[in-house]
Amino acid sequence: MGTILERKRKDGSTGYHAQVVVKKAGVTHRETRTFDRRPAARAWIEKRQKELAQPGALAAAKIEDPTLAEVIDRYVGDSRRPLGRTKAQVLKAIKGYDIAGKSCSAISSAEVVAFASELSAGRQPQTVSNYLAHLGSVFAIARPAWGYPLNSTVMDDALKVARRLGLTAKSRARDRRPTLTELDQLMRHFGDVRKRRPSSLPMQHVIAFAIFSTRRQEEITRLTWLDLDGSSGRILVRDMKNPGQKIGNDVWCELPAEALAIVRALPQVETRIFPYSTDAISAAFTRACALLGIDDLHFHDLRHEGVSRLFEMGRTVPLAALVSGHRSWQSLQRYTHVRLVGDKYAKWPWFEVVAQPEAHPSH
C-alpha cells in the first residue's frame, strides 16, 4: 500500500511525503521519502512496491537500510546511558522533518545541509549547531554499531559547509551580569510574593544560592541533603554538565560560607535541598524580570556573576574551579579579566534575609 501526503514546508514550498507500507508474516515495514513533485512521489512508490515484492527484499530493506527516524529510535532505545533532556527533545524534534523519512543510504551531505538550512528559519546559528551535534551522535555509531549505511563523513562534510554558509556558529559567551540594583528589585519582589503566598517558591534563597554557590539551575534542583558534607563545606553535584559526559559526572564542589549558610537556613522536608522543578524556577524568574523591566537577564547569568565574584575576591583559577566545578581551567580564563577588586556582596543586606532559618510553609 502506498500513500502520498502533501505538506507545506516552513519556507512556503510544498513537499510530497510518499509512504510505502508492506505487511507480511505479522511484520509491518514502512518507508517514507519526500519529493518536490507528486509524480516523482508516485513513481517511487510503484518502484519500491515492486522491489519489496521480490523474495527476501523486505527483510533486507528492514535490516540494512532503515529510515533516519528508525535509526534515531534505535539510538535512543539502545543507549545504556540516559540521554540528557535537551538531547532527547532535539532528537524527537528531528523526527518531524523531511530528512527523518529518508533511508540511510539516501542521506548525503547535501541533504544534511538542506536540513540545516530548514532549521535556520527562525533559529540562531548556535541552535542549529546544537541540532547537528546531537544528530551527529547518531551518525557516529549507526554504521559501526549496526551496519547501517549512514556515513559519519557525510555529517563532517555537511558541518564544514554549514559553517561556511553561516548556518551554524559557535555559541557566544555571555557576559551579562546582574547589577545590585536589579538584584535588589528581584529580592524585594520575591519577598513580597512570599508574604502573600507562603507556599510559593523561596526564590530569594534560590537566587542567592545560585550566586554564592555558582551552581547551574538544574544542578540546584538535584542537590540532596545526603550529598551535603557540612563539616568540610562541600557538596556532591551529580550529573554535572560536561562536554564529554553529563550523566554520571558527579563532582565534589566547595560550598562558600554564604552558600552553606543559605542551605542550613532551609527546612529539611524532602530528599532534595531545593525540591522544585527547573521549569517552575525558570518561569518565576522570567516573569519577575519582565514585570520589573529587567532586560536580557537569564537565570544562568547568576552563575556567571558568582564565578566572576570569586576572581574579584582574589581567587586563582584552581581555587575558583573548586567551587564552580570546571574541569578545564581554560574555560575559566574569560573570568580572570575582572575590573573590580573585592567583594561587592560583603555588606549585601539580602544575605541576612536568606540566612535566617525558614519554617516549612503550610500548603
Rank of each mutant, 00 (worst) to 15 (best):
G101D: 04
S277N: 10
I262C: 06
Y16M: 07
K95R: 11
T271K: 14
L236Y: 08
R303G: 06
Q245F: 04
P178R: 03
Q49N: 13
E111A: 11
V206C: 02
S129T: 08
D279M: 11
Y16W: 11
E31C: 05
G306P: 05
Y276I: 10
I247V: 12
H360T: 14
L228P: 07
E254P: 03
W225L: 08
F351H: 08
A142H: 12
L228F: 06
I281Q: 02
R177P: 05
P361N: 06
L292G: 02
A18D: 04
A265G: 12
A43V: 06
W350C: 00
A18L: 00
D11N: 15
L150P: 03
A140I: 06
C104R: 02
H326D: 00
R42P: 12
D343M: 10
A61E: 12
R85G: 04
S282R: 05
E118D: 15
W225Y: 08
D239A: 05
T3E: 09
P256R: 02
R197E: 13
R81V: 08
L340Y: 14
R80E: 10
S231I: 15
E358T: 12
V76D: 06
G96W: 09
A40N: 13
G306K: 09
T286P: 14
K246A: 13
I45G: 01
D157W: 14
H17I: 07
G342D: 00
S331I: 13
Q330A: 11
A257K: 13
L183K: 01
R81L: 04
T224I: 03
T14K: 08
G122T: 12
G233V: 03
G12E: 00
M313D: 03
G248E: 04
D229N: 15
D279N: 10
Y148C: 09
T67V: 06
R216H: 02
S103H: 13
K47E: 13
R177I: 01
T86P: 10
I211Q: 06
R9H: 08
Y335D: 03
V138E: 07
S199Y: 07
S213L: 07
C289E: 02
I141Y: 07
Y335W: 02
Q245P: 06
C253H: 06
R143P: 02
S232T: 12
R80Y: 02
I235Y: 00
A265W: 11
N151K: 15
N130G: 12
E51A: 08
E219W: 05
G122M: 06
P198K: 06
R163D: 10
R81P: 00
S232V: 08
S231N: 15
K344T: 05
A321W: 08
D36H: 09
L332D: 00
S103C: 15
H134V: 04
A359M: 15
V90R: 12
E312Q: 07
G233R: 10
E6L: 01
R197Q: 10
A162T: 01
A173V: 11
A18Q: 01
K92C: 09
A41E: 09
Q124S: 13
R42E: 15
A359C: 13
R327L: 12
G191Y: 05
I211N: 03
S199C: 08
L167D: 04
T278I: 12
S108M: 09
V112N: 03
R196D: 01
